[in-house]
Structure formats: C-alpha cells, structure tokens
Write a protein that binds this DNA or RNA. Structure first.
Lengths: 251, 251
DNA sequence: CGCACACTTGAACCCCCTCAACCCAAGTGG
DNA sequence: CCACTTGGGTTGAGGGGGTTCAAGTGTGCG
C-alpha cells in the first residue's frame, strides 16, 4: 500500500526496455551519468507516472519510500504550519530529482502546479541502482550540494531582503534558468500563481502583486498576460536582486 | 598560496599516524564510516588547524579548495549583501563537516564565533579518500540531505514564523541538540551573541532581546547569565516553536 | 452571458525595525 | 581603589514596510 493508492494518480505505463534511451530530459537530469549500456537497467526500475495539476504526490510526515524525477511540468516543494501558513522551499521543474531524504519520512510536501509527469523509483530499487552505478551516487551528492547552495541563497532572501529585492530576485532567477534552457532572454512564462510566488518569497499575494505593478509602472517590466513577464531592464533587475540598489527608490 | 597565508591562523600540528585513532569526535562526524584499519590513511590527509574567535576561515566567492571538520568550538556560516546585511544560514558545531560545494568557489563564508579547532582536507586529498572509502561518499550524501532538511525548516521559519516563534524555535532546537549530546535537559549555554542569533533568525538584535525578556517575564525561561538560558516550560516552548500556539499571547 | 477564479488596488493597521538612551560586567590604568 | 573605556545587552519611543481586510477589475470558459 503506497501513498498513491487512495488518489487518482495515473500510471501512464511501466517503463520498458528502451524507454530511457529515448527520454529527452535524460541529458539534463541525474540519469545522464548512466551510459548507453545501462539504460535498459535504468528503465527497468523507473516507472513513469502522470500527476494532474493540484495533486499532492508527496506529503510531509509520510513514509518516504519513493524518489521522483520530473520529466514534464512543475511541482512545488513546501512545508506548512498547523494553522495553514505555507512556505514553498522550491519549484521542481523538468529534470529535477525529488525525494532526497535520509529519514524514513518525507520532511516536505510536493504538489504538481501544472500537469506533470515523472519517473518514480522505489527506495530499494534506487539503492540497487546506486550499487550498480557508483557514478550516480556522486551525481546525487552533486545535486544535493547544488540544492544546499540554492537553499542558502533563499535563506538570505527570506531573512534579509526587502519585498522589492525578493520579487526582483525571483524574476532574475527565473530569467537565468530560462536563458540556460535556450529560451528568449527577456521573456518569462510563470507556471505558478501569485499566491505561490508569495508563499515562495515569504510575502503575501498583495505585496507580490503591488511590487510587480510598481515594476511595470516604472517601465522595468511588462505584463502582457497573467503568466507572462517581459523584462525590459535586465541590468536594473539584477542590481535590485543582489541588493546593490537598496536605496534606488529615492532616486 | 591558500587563503590562510595572509591570516594568523595557527597550524597546531600536522596530523600524524594514530592521530585520528584517538580523536574523540570521530564517532559523531563523517569520519565514523572509516574503520580502524583506515585511520592511519585518514590521519595522513587531515591537517589539524586552530582558528581564533572572530577569524573568518572561509570567504564567499573564494576558491573552494578546502573542506573542514570541526573538532572543537563553533563557527557561523553566513552570506552577506553588498550593504552589509547578514544572514547566518547555520552554526557549525563539533562534528560538523564544512565546505560541501560543487562549484569551484565557496557560496558562503564561515567565521569562528569561539576559539575553534578543525581538521582540514584539501580537495584532491578528500577526493582520494572518497576513492578509497566509498562509504564516505554515502555518508557525505547523508550529511548533505540532513542539511537540506534543516535548510527547509529554516526557510519555513524565515518566511512564515513570527518573532516569538522564531526565538522559541531557536531555543527548542538548541535544547534538542544539547539533550542529544547528553547535556542537562533544561539548561542551555549559547556560544553566540544576540546579534548572531538575530542574524540567524532574520530579526534585529533588539527584537531578540525583547522577545527573550518577554519569555522571562512570562516565567517560561530564566536568564542566569549573558550566555545561559534555563528552559522552565519546555512543553510551552515547543508548542510555540511549531506554531501551534499562534494566538497564545491573548490567553 | 454570467459565473468563477486569479489578480489588482485601496485604506487602515500592526509587528517589527530604527534610533536613541541606558545598563552592566569586564577590563585598564593612574 | 576608583575613574574611564569598551562591548554586549536591555529598554523605550516612534516610524514604516508589509499585512490585513475589503472592494473592484479583468479574463477564461461553460
């Protein structure tokens, strides 16, 4: 009995031989350390799953028996307080490996914020994989370190940055990722709502909205649609994001 | 030329054969995965260093060529904004492994907040060690995962908790660690100043001081000296820390 | 068309910050 | 021994950035 049993999560298909070989996100995920001759083995332990928007597929405190690798869509990783206050600790996009935890229970929850697909690995199967491909372990350590660096950056944001700086950091970060993916260098599509941005930045939805409006009013960005942002002044954005522009509001 | 060259950091002694064998913090650090027959090898790559209080021994942005394992004292891990705002992302006590980073530069700074001793490993030497002791890599991954969990918890604190809850969380956390080390279950000794607590909790020194005073006034804690805290009501403390007690101020 | 939902905007409030004074203990030196 | 300094901590008064509460504005979709 696993945590999917009581939810309408769809198993698209069990991964079969040659599945991983044709995976188009393999090169940007942890799987890229496994050579061509190991892909059949990899495919034999991966199970492709589809999770609909709004679906919670990891719940804090539940037994941590699965690991996931996002192949399509986006999920939010979050923690909650008893009274409902929520903090999103990260957004997991395509290629993101999910579930790193030593404990036997998850320390966080995860919810698909758009229709999402992912490979699922059970704990014993991943362990078997690690035995067989020692490079995979190095790669996971690398991944964990990168997340740790990102977490420290986010702590700086949450503890010490102003609302202006938080929103600017968020946009600048998204822009960097988009550029790294080969997307246009001044246009963003945000899969998350304002509330999710707020829960990620430690703000309220109103403050996020107001801050974006202010940026738009100042001619720094444009908001062509609900989920699109055009960055009109990238240099200004990154200087606000890094806190170099702390008093610029008065200039 | 390493980053110690221009600072009065003292090399106590090069670790020699049998050094690690008699190390009394080995059992609570990553070194505990190395068996008795590997201790000479371990000692041959570890260099014991002494760092005085106030000394910065890792600087953000500098070339990340060393790893450290704290054997005595405490260091603060922090990041700064150009205008001096500081966020402490963690305190590294005895047994803490420091320097996990994939990048070739450190993403954070570290400063000893009391006189501190540590083992230093250069990057190539640690790499050699990892080749020789595969278990060590598993252990580092485990460490990184634990830090990731702690970081997520801290993001929840910084993004969503009130000052009361932050200070209570800090005390409760310290108490848990103290108890885990076998210290008395209601008495804390804090190696850090109020300012450092504030920089860790995303508050100001005044708010930390006021909040502690309030706790004391309410009979929940006692402050026998500058760096000591006695927890008079542990149950109340943990309920405030977890946010269950959000409105208790009115009761 | 009209409902639902996400977002925006406005006004009042409050928690925490800022600024400032003061306290206290530990040196230090005449 | 006491005056003075220094550094960390406490306490008070006032202000402001972000929240809260509330109303209004799209916008997609049946």
């Amino acid at each position: 009995m696993n945590e999917f049993a009581r939810r309408p999560v769809v198993v698209v298909r069990n991964a079969v031989v040659n599945q991983c070989e044709h995976c188009n996100v393999r090169h940007r995920s942890v799987c890229n350390v496994i050579e061509a001759d190991g892909l059949d083995r990899l495919a034999s332990v991966a199970e492709l799953r589809r999770v609909e928007k709004g679906q919670v597929f990891i719940e804090e405190g539940q037994s941590a028996r699965d690991f996931f690798n996002i192949t399509l869509g986006t999920a939010k990783i979050y923690k909650m307080l008893p009274d409902g206050r929520q903090q999103i600790t990260g957004f997991a996009g395509v290629g993101h490996f999910l579930g790193l935890a030593v404990s036997d229970t998850y320390a966080f929850s995860a919810e698909a914020i758009e229709d999402t697909e992912m490979c699922r690995f059970t704990r014993p199967k991943l362990r078997g994989l690690l035995e067989e491909f020692p490079l995979l372990e190095k790669r996971l350590l690398e991944t964990a370190c990168n997340e740790l660096v990102a977490a420290q950056e986010q702590m700086l944001l949450l503890g010490r940055k102003t609302a202006r700086e938080r929103v600017a950091t968020f946009l600048a970060m998204r822009l960097n990722e988009a550029v790294a993916c080969g997307d246009p260098p001044n246009r963003l599509t945000l899969p998350m709502t304002r509330l999710e941005i707020a829960d990620y930045l430690g703000l309220t939805i109103e403050t996020v909205s107001r801050t974006l409006s202010r940026f738009k009013q100042d001619g720094k960005i444009a908001l062509p649609s609900r989920d699109e942002v055009e960055i009109l002044d990238p240099h200004w954005l990154s200087s606000v994001a890094t806190g170099e522009d702390h008093h610029a509001a008065f200039i």
